[in-house]
Write a protein that binds this DNA or RNA. Sequence first.
DNA 1: TGCTCCTGTCGAATCGATTCGATCGCCGTC
DNA 2: GACGGCGATCGAATCGATTCGACAGGAGCA
Lengths: 350, 350
Amino acid sequence: MSTRPTLAAVAACAGVSPSTASLVFSGSPRVTPSTRERVLAAAATLGYAGPDPLAASLRRGRSGVIGAFVGERLLYAFRDPVAVQLLDGITEVLGPHGVGLLLLAGDTGRPSTEQIGRIPLDAAIFATCGLEDDPALDQLRARGVPLVVVEGPVLDGVVLIDIDDRRGTRELARHLHDLGHRRVEVLTMPLRLDGRRGPIDGARRARAHYRDVRHRLEGVEDVFGPVPAVEAASNAVDEGTAAGRALLDVPAHRRPTAVIAHSDMLAAGVLQAAADLGLRVPEDVSVAGFDGADLHWLGDTRLTTVVQPTDEKGRAAAQAAMDLVAGGSPRDLTLPVTLRIGTTSGPAPS
Amino acid sequence: MSTRPTLAAVAACAGVSPSTASLVFSGSPRVTPSTRERVLAAAATLGYAGPDPLAASLRRGRSGVIGAFVGERLLYAFRDPVAVQLLDGITEVLGPHGVGLLLLAGDTGRPSTEQIGRIPLDAAIFATCGLEDDPALDQLRARGVPLVVVEGPVLDGVVLIDIDDRRGTRELARHLHDLGHRRVEVLTMPLRLDGRRGPIDGARRARAHYRDVRHRLEGVEDVFGPVPAVEAASNAVDEGTAAGRALLDVPAHRRPTAVIAHSDMLAAGVLQAAADLGLRVPEDVSVAGFDGADLHWLGDTRLTTVVQPTDEKGRAAAQAAMDLVAGGSPRDLTLPVTLRIGTTSGPAPS
DNA sequence: TGCTCCTGTCGAATCGATTCGATCGCCGTC
DNA sequence: GACGGCGATCGAATCGATTCGACAGGAGCA
């Protein structure tokens, strides 16, 4: 009662050696049915529910836990359909392997360096926080934990799962260019997580933390050349609305004819802002996004966007992590994106 | 290079015993600064990044990981703002304690009984899946893992964090009754996760898996007596829309004057259905929800709802789990809810 | 009957750290 | 000068299972 029985106790009770008992619980076929039954009976008698995962993990050298870092506090990270879908893709692969997913949120100020050192992880996936100088990342590297980053920094010995951000926004930009748009503005996701919003200058851009943001900007510039860009403080709909209002609530001759947002969430906000200002989409202004998330509350409006294979990205990341744990050395991967033209882009107003 | 250094190696290199080295890494004040430095220097030389969490866990008897069960597949569970907020509340407490949150989703058919047995958990929280006969729950109980259930079944030795569902819907029902409503219908969350939807009969109701659903139904009946109820197949907006259409698309004299949904998500769907049918809310029909989630896409519409302290619920569950791990015996808890009257409830049409 | 081969079971080492009680040396005090 | 006390360090047991190589006994074959 006071303490849970051990495998050794079960073995003793069944009159076999601990090794044999262990074989039974690991489902080895090399143990006689009668012996197996005797051990299981002893286990039932003693109320033994199977080997202690901690001890087994130590011996095996693996804990069966893979960590996923999401940059922000959970509450905000999970408002982002892309983050959720990514995690879903990850669990889809991990689950059947009997591997658990541990969430690590960089919420409470200090990114819990303490915590990271104390938790048994077989590998870690940097899911939505591709910082280039994340201390948590460094620490895990030092500990020798296999690492996978999703759209993160390029680092030695770290597997990178990427998407072709730049090509995506380039095609999108070309689409808008073909429609006659010349006055285009970009609304980006945060360059750093410091709550800043507003126009992006060179200095700010140079200090960008996130590679994907840079790439999505470059794709647009491949077509339009230098383009005014505005930064949102977070990837949230109301951020998009606020930024959209600032972009669109100007005299018509100075108003952009198209707004390219770096995410569907932000684009949805811009649509809202346009509606608030009485602007028609796409007649008065075209709006485009990125991600291909299905934002059900948009109703019949189909956003013009760059569709990325988010779930595939999650699965690939998880698979890479599993491979690393198994001792393999999976290769970096860049997944393709596709342009999806919806009802929010049209010819530039004359 | 081939294998990571151990604490013993560091100790040897520093010329101290393993025990002393261990003291250094656990930050004990009882070790001389010069010794400490020597050990740390040796660690740096060998590239030792701190004690192996697995070994430490085994010795300590704790892994620093707490599991959270979310019933459905992640993708669906996280569409529910309540689930997300609950998890956020949990991490809010766990994070500062250096404890990680492991997500366990009952996704892939078999609820991964295998997985549960292999993962080192200090405690588990059943977050959004209060099944009364969950095999995972039984297994964890057998293993002696401390358990907390949120709005789940009442079980011996399991801490229950609850909210006052029944009182909440009772007050809501009284509000509607006071407004003159007499023809009221209820739209419930799933009674079981079997994908069934439609009117609920006695047999179905008797086989309900979820206590909170029952309680929310009883609260309404406390005021209105037996009331027709319809079940949604999941807690999703479009489920609410489908059910709402079925409820409202009938001749006016048979149409309910008020629909009480068991969640804000479902209520949002009903609002959508009403809009689709050209019904005004609340002039033609009143709609109420439950949760107090802020569904930003509702715009200016403020849903009449029962507000539950979701984050507080998460924090309480996490705190209880921490207490259990520490050897305490936290008490069950029932948190209060409050009625919030919005713009979607008004006098019954005559 | 004797030898080999195979199968089921056992012993013992191992995974890597933590921790309690013991020890050793040093300083202060009587 | 001897002894008490205290603080830093060390030894060794322990956490609970896994696993490899050894071993014993029975079956098959010559």
